[in-house]
Write a protein that binds this DNA or RNA. Structure first.
Lengths: 178, 178
DNA sequence: TACTACGTTTAGAATTTACTAAACGTAGTA
DNA sequence: TACTACGTTTAGTAAATTCTAAACGTAGTA
Protein backbone atom coordinates (compact mmCIF):
# COMPACT_ATOMS: atom_id res chain seq x y z
CA UNK A 1 0.00 0.00 0.00
CA UNK A 2 1.18 3.46 -0.82
CA UNK A 3 2.14 5.70 2.09
CA UNK A 4 -0.86 7.97 2.43
CA UNK A 5 1.18 10.62 4.24
CA UNK A 6 2.51 11.68 0.89
CA UNK A 7 -0.79 13.15 -0.11
CA UNK A 8 -0.10 16.07 2.21
CA UNK A 9 3.12 17.05 0.44
CA UNK A 10 1.53 18.99 -2.41
CA UNK A 11 -0.60 20.91 0.06
CA UNK A 12 2.49 21.84 2.04
CA UNK A 13 4.24 22.96 -1.11
CA UNK A 14 1.33 25.14 -2.07
CA UNK A 15 1.51 26.94 1.22
CA UNK A 16 5.28 27.27 1.04
CA UNK A 17 4.89 28.99 -2.29
CA UNK A 18 2.09 31.15 -0.96
CA UNK A 19 4.15 32.37 1.95
CA UNK A 20 7.14 32.94 -0.31
CA UNK A 21 4.96 35.22 -2.37
CA UNK A 22 3.75 37.13 0.67
CA UNK A 23 7.33 37.48 1.81
CA UNK A 24 8.36 38.88 -1.56
CA UNK A 25 5.37 41.23 -1.55
CA UNK A 26 6.53 42.80 1.68
CA UNK A 27 10.05 43.24 0.36
CA UNK A 28 11.69 40.30 2.06
CA UNK A 29 13.66 37.57 0.30
CA UNK A 30 11.46 34.85 -1.10
CA UNK A 31 13.67 32.24 0.51
CA UNK A 32 12.92 33.77 3.87
CA UNK A 33 9.24 33.12 3.40
CA UNK A 34 9.96 29.57 2.34
CA UNK A 35 12.08 28.91 5.40
CA UNK A 36 9.45 30.30 7.69
CA UNK A 37 6.76 28.24 5.97
CA UNK A 38 8.76 25.03 6.36
CA UNK A 39 9.23 25.70 10.05
CA UNK A 40 5.65 26.78 10.54
CA UNK A 41 4.38 23.55 9.03
CA UNK A 42 6.83 21.33 10.87
CA UNK A 43 5.46 19.68 14.03
CA UNK A 44 8.97 19.70 15.50
CA UNK A 45 11.96 22.08 15.30
CA UNK A 46 14.15 21.62 12.23
CA UNK A 47 17.93 21.74 11.97
CA UNK A 48 19.80 23.89 9.50
CA UNK A 49 20.60 20.82 7.43
CA UNK A 50 16.99 19.73 7.33
CA UNK A 51 16.11 23.19 6.07
CA UNK A 52 18.81 22.89 3.42
CA UNK A 53 17.40 19.65 2.09
CA UNK A 54 13.77 20.76 2.26
CA UNK A 55 14.12 24.21 0.71
CA UNK A 56 16.88 23.57 -1.80
CA UNK A 57 18.80 26.62 -0.62
CA UNK A 58 22.42 26.32 0.45
CA UNK A 59 23.70 26.36 4.00
CA UNK A 60 24.93 29.91 3.66
CA UNK A 61 21.60 31.26 2.54
CA UNK A 62 19.75 29.37 5.24
CA UNK A 63 22.17 30.60 7.87
CA UNK A 64 21.70 34.23 6.86
CA UNK A 65 17.94 34.10 6.51
CA UNK A 66 17.44 32.16 9.69
CA UNK A 67 19.30 34.84 11.62
CA UNK A 68 17.17 37.56 10.09
CA UNK A 69 13.97 35.68 10.91
CA UNK A 70 15.11 35.20 14.48
CA UNK A 71 15.88 38.92 14.84
CA UNK A 72 12.32 39.64 13.79
CA UNK A 73 11.02 37.15 16.29
CA UNK A 74 9.32 35.08 13.59
CA UNK A 75 11.28 31.97 14.54
CA UNK A 76 13.16 30.88 17.62
CA UNK A 77 16.39 28.93 18.02
CA UNK A 78 16.09 25.75 20.02
CA UNK A 79 19.14 24.00 21.41
CA UNK A 80 19.14 20.44 22.64
CA UNK A 81 21.43 19.17 25.36
CA UNK A 82 24.24 17.08 24.00
CA UNK A 83 23.41 18.02 20.42
CA UNK A 84 25.62 20.47 18.64
CA UNK A 85 23.04 21.22 15.98
CA UNK A 86 20.90 24.33 16.15
CA UNK A 87 17.21 23.83 15.67
CA UNK A 88 14.57 26.37 14.85
CA UNK A 89 10.84 26.55 15.40
CA UNK A 90 8.28 29.06 14.15
CA UNK A 91 6.68 31.61 16.41
CA UNK A 92 2.96 30.97 16.23
CA UNK A 93 1.87 34.27 17.76
CA UNK A 94 2.25 36.64 14.83
CA UNK A 95 1.26 39.66 16.88
CA UNK A 96 4.20 39.08 19.13
CA UNK A 97 6.45 39.03 16.07
CA UNK A 98 5.05 42.31 14.87
CA UNK A 99 5.83 43.78 18.24
CA UNK A 100 9.38 42.42 18.13
CA UNK A 101 9.81 43.90 14.72
CA UNK A 102 8.65 47.27 15.94
CA UNK A 103 11.01 47.07 18.92
CA UNK A 104 13.84 46.21 16.55
CA UNK A 105 13.40 49.61 15.10
CA UNK A 106 15.18 51.02 18.11
CA UNK A 107 18.37 50.25 16.26
CA UNK A 108 19.15 50.72 12.63
CA UNK A 109 17.83 52.74 9.77
CA UNK A 110 14.18 52.67 10.72
CA UNK A 111 15.00 54.00 14.17
CA UNK A 112 16.77 57.04 12.82
CA UNK A 113 13.94 57.68 10.39
CA UNK A 114 11.27 57.62 13.09
CA UNK A 115 13.47 59.64 15.40
CA UNK A 116 13.91 62.23 12.71
CA UNK A 117 10.15 62.75 12.53
CA UNK A 118 10.06 63.23 16.27
CA UNK A 119 13.01 65.61 16.17
CA UNK A 120 11.54 67.63 13.32
CA UNK A 121 8.35 68.01 15.32
CA UNK A 122 10.26 69.30 18.32
CA UNK A 123 12.17 71.78 16.22
CA UNK A 124 8.94 73.06 14.75
CA UNK A 125 7.23 73.34 18.11
CA UNK A 126 10.02 75.05 19.99
CA UNK A 127 11.90 76.94 17.30
CA UNK A 128 11.14 80.30 15.80
CA UNK A 129 11.78 81.63 12.31
CA UNK A 130 9.95 81.10 9.07
CA UNK A 131 6.63 82.50 8.11
CA UNK A 132 4.02 81.94 10.83
CA UNK A 133 1.26 80.39 8.71
CA UNK A 134 3.58 77.99 6.95
CA UNK A 135 5.15 77.04 10.23
CA UNK A 136 1.75 76.28 11.74
CA UNK A 137 0.79 74.19 8.74
CA UNK A 138 3.98 72.15 8.85
CA UNK A 139 3.69 71.64 12.59
CA UNK A 140 0.19 70.28 12.24
CA UNK A 141 1.14 67.87 9.45
CA UNK A 142 4.22 66.56 11.22
CA UNK A 143 2.28 66.18 14.45
CA UNK A 144 -0.33 64.06 12.67
CA UNK A 145 2.41 61.88 11.22
CA UNK A 146 4.03 61.44 14.58
CA UNK A 147 0.70 60.55 16.18
CA UNK A 148 0.17 57.91 13.53
CA UNK A 149 3.45 56.20 14.29
CA UNK A 150 2.71 56.29 18.00
CA UNK A 151 -0.75 54.86 17.48
CA UNK A 152 0.56 51.98 15.39
CA UNK A 153 3.17 51.28 18.00
CA UNK A 154 0.62 51.34 20.81
CA UNK A 155 -1.74 49.09 18.89
CA UNK A 156 0.98 46.55 18.19
CA UNK A 157 1.98 46.62 21.84
CA UNK A 158 -1.60 46.03 22.83
CA UNK A 159 -2.00 43.12 20.46
CA UNK A 160 1.18 41.49 21.68
CA UNK A 161 0.22 42.02 25.29
CA UNK A 162 -3.14 40.39 24.67
CA UNK A 163 -1.20 37.47 23.25
CA UNK A 164 -3.00 37.72 20.00
CA UNK A 165 -6.00 39.48 18.67
CA UNK A 166 -8.41 37.09 17.07
CA UNK A 167 -11.19 37.93 14.70
CA UNK A 168 -13.58 37.86 17.63
CA UNK A 169 -11.60 40.42 19.56
CA UNK A 170 -11.45 42.75 16.61
CA UNK A 171 -15.19 42.45 16.18
CA UNK A 172 -15.73 43.30 19.84
CA UNK A 173 -13.60 46.40 19.46
CA UNK A 174 -15.65 47.43 16.48
CA UNK A 175 -18.89 46.96 18.35
CA UNK A 176 -17.70 49.01 21.29
CA UNK A 177 -16.54 51.84 19.11
CA UNK A 178 -19.35 52.08 16.62
CA UNK B 1 16.32 91.70 5.07
CA UNK B 2 16.68 88.01 4.42
CA UNK B 3 13.53 86.06 3.64
CA UNK B 4 12.80 84.28 6.90
CA UNK B 5 10.70 81.63 5.18
CA UNK B 6 13.92 79.99 4.15
CA UNK B 7 14.61 78.89 7.68
CA UNK B 8 11.95 76.20 7.26
CA UNK B 9 13.72 74.60 4.30
CA UNK B 10 16.27 72.58 6.29
CA UNK B 11 13.48 71.27 8.50
CA UNK B 12 11.52 70.17 5.46
CA UNK B 13 14.58 68.46 4.04
CA UNK B 14 15.13 66.60 7.27
CA UNK B 15 11.64 65.19 7.11
CA UNK B 16 11.94 64.33 3.45
CA UNK B 17 15.02 62.30 4.25
CA UNK B 18 13.32 60.70 7.22
CA UNK B 19 10.36 59.56 5.15
CA UNK B 20 12.67 58.35 2.40
CA UNK B 21 14.35 56.16 4.98
CA UNK B 22 11.05 54.77 6.22
CA UNK B 23 10.03 54.09 2.65
CA UNK B 24 13.25 52.19 2.03
CA UNK B 25 12.81 50.27 5.27
CA UNK B 26 9.47 48.95 4.13
CA UNK B 27 10.90 47.90 0.79
CA UNK B 28 9.64 50.78 -1.31
CA UNK B 29 11.82 53.02 -3.48
CA UNK B 30 13.45 55.83 -1.56
CA UNK B 31 12.27 58.25 -4.18
CA UNK B 32 8.71 57.26 -3.48
CA UNK B 33 9.09 58.32 0.13
CA UNK B 34 10.61 61.60 -0.97
CA UNK B 35 7.75 62.33 -3.35
CA UNK B 36 5.17 61.58 -0.70
CA UNK B 37 7.02 63.76 1.80
CA UNK B 38 7.14 66.70 -0.62
CA UNK B 39 3.42 66.42 -1.20
CA UNK B 40 2.62 65.89 2.45
CA UNK B 41 4.49 69.06 3.38
CA UNK B 42 3.03 71.13 0.58
CA UNK B 43 0.05 73.29 1.52
CA UNK B 44 -1.26 73.00 -2.02
CA UNK B 45 -1.23 70.25 -4.68
CA UNK B 46 1.97 70.04 -6.73
CA UNK B 47 2.39 69.38 -10.42
CA UNK B 48 4.65 66.74 -11.86
CA UNK B 49 7.13 69.42 -12.92
CA UNK B 50 7.20 70.94 -9.47
CA UNK B 51 7.98 67.51 -8.10
CA UNK B 52 10.75 67.13 -10.66
CA UNK B 53 12.42 70.35 -9.58
CA UNK B 54 11.95 69.74 -5.86
CA UNK B 55 13.07 66.12 -5.69
CA UNK B 56 15.77 66.11 -8.37
CA UNK B 57 14.28 62.98 -9.96
CA UNK B 58 13.43 62.90 -13.66
CA UNK B 59 9.95 63.12 -15.12
CA UNK B 60 9.90 59.42 -15.86
CA UNK B 61 10.70 58.42 -12.33
CA UNK B 62 8.18 60.83 -10.88
CA UNK B 63 5.53 59.61 -13.28
CA UNK B 64 6.07 56.00 -12.29
CA UNK B 65 6.27 56.57 -8.55
CA UNK B 66 3.33 58.92 -8.49
CA UNK B 67 1.18 56.28 -10.12
CA UNK B 68 2.25 53.69 -7.56
CA UNK B 69 1.54 56.07 -4.70
CA UNK B 70 -1.89 56.82 -6.11
CA UNK B 71 -2.67 53.09 -6.42
CA UNK B 72 -1.88 52.73 -2.73
CA UNK B 73 -4.10 55.66 -1.92
CA UNK B 74 -1.26 57.59 -0.34
CA UNK B 75 -1.72 60.49 -2.73
CA UNK B 76 -4.57 61.68 -4.92
CA UNK B 77 -4.58 63.26 -8.37
CA UNK B 78 -6.17 66.65 -8.61
CA UNK B 79 -7.21 68.17 -11.91
CA UNK B 80 -7.97 71.81 -12.43
CA UNK B 81 -10.36 73.13 -14.99
CA UNK B 82 -8.65 74.61 -17.99
CA UNK B 83 -5.28 73.37 -16.83
CA UNK B 84 -3.72 70.44 -18.62
CA UNK B 85 -1.30 69.69 -15.81
CA UNK B 86 -1.95 66.95 -13.30
CA UNK B 87 -1.57 67.89 -9.67
CA UNK B 88 -1.20 65.63 -6.69
CA UNK B 89 -1.92 66.01 -3.03
CA UNK B 90 -1.12 63.73 -0.10
CA UNK B 91 -3.74 61.68 1.68
CA UNK B 92 -3.65 62.76 5.31
CA UNK B 93 -5.62 59.83 6.70
CA UNK B 94 -2.99 57.12 6.80
CA UNK B 95 -5.41 54.50 8.03
CA UNK B 96 -7.45 54.94 4.91
CA UNK B 97 -4.31 54.36 2.87
CA UNK B 98 -3.55 51.17 4.72
CA UNK B 99 -7.03 49.99 3.94
CA UNK B 100 -6.63 50.86 0.27
CA UNK B 101 -3.38 48.99 0.20
CA UNK B 102 -5.03 45.93 1.68
CA UNK B 103 -7.85 46.16 -0.85
CA UNK B 104 -5.29 46.40 -3.62
CA UNK B 105 -4.30 42.90 -2.73
CA UNK B 106 -7.36 41.68 -4.61
CA UNK B 107 -5.22 41.89 -7.72
CA UNK B 108 -1.66 40.89 -8.24
CA UNK B 109 0.84 38.74 -6.52
CA UNK B 110 -0.27 39.37 -2.98
CA UNK B 111 -3.82 38.42 -3.84
CA UNK B 112 -2.82 35.04 -5.16
CA UNK B 113 -0.63 34.43 -2.13
CA UNK B 114 -3.41 35.19 0.33
CA UNK B 115 -5.88 33.22 -1.73
CA UNK B 116 -3.54 30.28 -1.70
CA UNK B 117 -3.60 30.20 2.10
CA UNK B 118 -7.38 30.22 2.01
CA UNK B 119 -7.46 27.52 -0.62
CA UNK B 120 -4.98 25.33 1.24
CA UNK B 121 -7.14 25.61 4.32
CA UNK B 122 -10.20 24.50 2.41
CA UNK B 123 -8.37 21.55 0.94
CA UNK B 124 -7.23 20.50 4.37
CA UNK B 125 -10.67 20.85 5.90
CA UNK B 126 -12.65 19.09 3.23
CA UNK B 127 -10.15 16.63 1.74
CA UNK B 128 -9.13 13.24 3.01
CA UNK B 129 -5.83 11.39 2.75
CA UNK B 130 -2.65 11.74 4.68
CA UNK B 131 -2.01 10.67 8.19
CA UNK B 132 -4.71 11.88 10.55
CA UNK B 133 -2.53 13.48 13.23
CA UNK B 134 -0.38 15.35 10.74
CA UNK B 135 -3.45 16.49 8.88
CA UNK B 136 -4.98 17.84 12.07
CA UNK B 137 -1.76 19.64 12.93
CA UNK B 138 -1.48 21.27 9.52
CA UNK B 139 -5.12 22.27 9.54
CA UNK B 140 -4.72 24.01 12.87
CA UNK B 141 -1.62 25.91 11.80
CA UNK B 142 -3.07 27.03 8.49
CA UNK B 143 -6.28 28.05 10.17
CA UNK B 144 -4.35 30.24 12.62
CA UNK B 145 -2.52 31.88 9.75
CA UNK B 146 -5.73 32.52 7.90
CA UNK B 147 -7.33 34.00 11.01
CA UNK B 148 -4.39 36.34 11.38
CA UNK B 149 -4.81 37.71 7.89
CA UNK B 150 -8.52 38.16 8.43
CA UNK B 151 -7.96 39.93 11.74
CA UNK B 152 -5.48 42.36 10.23
CA UNK B 153 -7.88 43.04 7.43
CA UNK B 154 -10.78 43.62 9.80
CA UNK B 155 -8.71 45.91 11.99
CA UNK B 156 -7.59 47.99 9.04
CA UNK B 157 -11.18 48.22 7.85
CA UNK B 158 -12.25 49.37 11.28
CA UNK B 159 -9.55 52.01 11.46
CA UNK B 160 -10.41 53.35 8.05
CA UNK B 161 -14.11 53.37 8.81
CA UNK B 162 -13.48 55.31 12.00
CA UNK B 163 -11.57 57.76 9.82
CA UNK B 164 -8.45 57.24 11.81
CA UNK B 165 -7.51 55.76 15.10
CA UNK B 166 -5.68 58.23 17.26
CA UNK B 167 -3.52 57.53 20.26
CA UNK B 168 -6.49 58.27 22.48
CA UNK B 169 -8.66 55.70 20.76
CA UNK B 170 -6.00 53.05 21.03
CA UNK B 171 -5.65 53.77 24.71
CA UNK B 172 -9.39 53.46 25.20
CA UNK B 173 -9.35 50.10 23.50
CA UNK B 174 -6.59 48.98 25.79
CA UNK B 175 -8.45 50.09 28.87
CA UNK B 176 -11.60 48.27 27.83
CA UNK B 177 -9.77 45.08 27.11
CA UNK B 178 -7.37 44.87 30.00
C1' DT C 1 47.41 16.58 18.06
C1' DA C 2 44.51 15.66 14.18
C1' DC C 3 39.73 14.75 12.92
C1' DT C 4 34.90 15.59 12.45
C1' DA C 5 30.64 18.03 12.44
C1' DC C 6 28.82 21.82 12.63
C1' DG C 7 27.61 27.17 11.69
C1' DT C 8 29.49 31.47 9.58
C1' DT C 9 31.71 34.37 6.41
C1' DT C 10 33.40 35.67 1.96
C1' DA C 11 33.97 36.25 -3.08
C1' DG C 12 31.65 36.36 -6.87
C1' DA C 13 27.55 35.42 -10.17
C1' DA C 14 22.88 36.10 -11.49
C1' DT C 15 19.03 38.65 -10.94
C1' DT C 16 16.31 42.48 -9.81
C1' DT C 17 15.54 47.27 -8.89
C1' DA C 18 15.28 52.13 -9.52
C1' DC C 19 16.76 55.26 -11.98
C1' DT C 20 18.13 58.49 -16.43
C1' DA C 21 17.70 60.10 -21.02
C1' DA C 22 15.26 60.25 -24.81
C1' DA C 23 11.65 58.80 -27.85
C1' DC C 24 6.87 58.70 -28.06
C1' DG C 25 1.75 59.66 -27.89
C1' DT C 26 -1.75 62.93 -27.38
C1' DA C 27 -4.69 66.71 -26.53
C1' DG C 28 -5.29 71.28 -26.96
C1' DT C 29 -3.99 75.77 -29.91
C1' DA C 30 -2.91 78.64 -33.77
C1' DT D 1 -1.86 71.36 -40.52
C1' DA D 2 2.00 72.12 -37.61
C1' DC D 3 3.22 73.48 -32.95
C1' DT D 4 3.41 73.23 -28.03
C1' DA D 5 2.98 71.38 -23.51
C1' DC D 6 2.28 67.96 -21.18
C1' DG D 7 2.42 62.70 -19.26
C1' DT D 8 4.01 57.96 -20.45
C1' DT D 9 6.83 54.40 -22.13
C1' DT D 10 11.12 52.37 -23.41
C1' DA D 11 16.04 51.14 -23.70
C1' DG D 12 19.77 51.03 -21.26
C1' DT D 13 22.64 51.55 -16.87
C1' DA D 14 24.32 51.60 -12.23
C1' DA D 15 23.67 49.77 -7.95
C1' DA D 16 21.73 46.77 -4.70
C1' DT D 17 20.02 42.17 -3.52
C1' DT D 18 20.05 37.31 -2.97
C1' DC D 19 21.83 33.65 -3.81
C1' DT D 20 25.94 29.70 -4.57
C1' DA D 21 30.23 27.58 -3.71
C1' DA D 22 33.87 27.24 -1.07
C1' DA D 23 36.94 28.73 2.49
C1' DC D 24 36.99 29.42 7.22
C1' DG D 25 36.51 29.16 12.40
C1' DT D 26 35.49 26.48 16.28
C1' DA D 27 34.03 23.25 19.63
C1' DG D 28 33.89 18.75 20.84
C1' DT D 29 36.28 13.85 20.35
C1' DA D 30 39.71 10.38 19.84
Amino acid sequence: MVNMTESLEPIKNELVEGLSGISAFWGFPKGMGAIFAMLYLAPTPLSLDELVSQTGLTKGAISTNVRALARMGLIHPVTRLGDRKDYYEAETNFYRSIRTLLMERQNGEFARAIASVQSVLEKLETGAGGEAAERAFLTERVRALNDFFNAIDALASAAARLDGLGLGTVQSILKILK
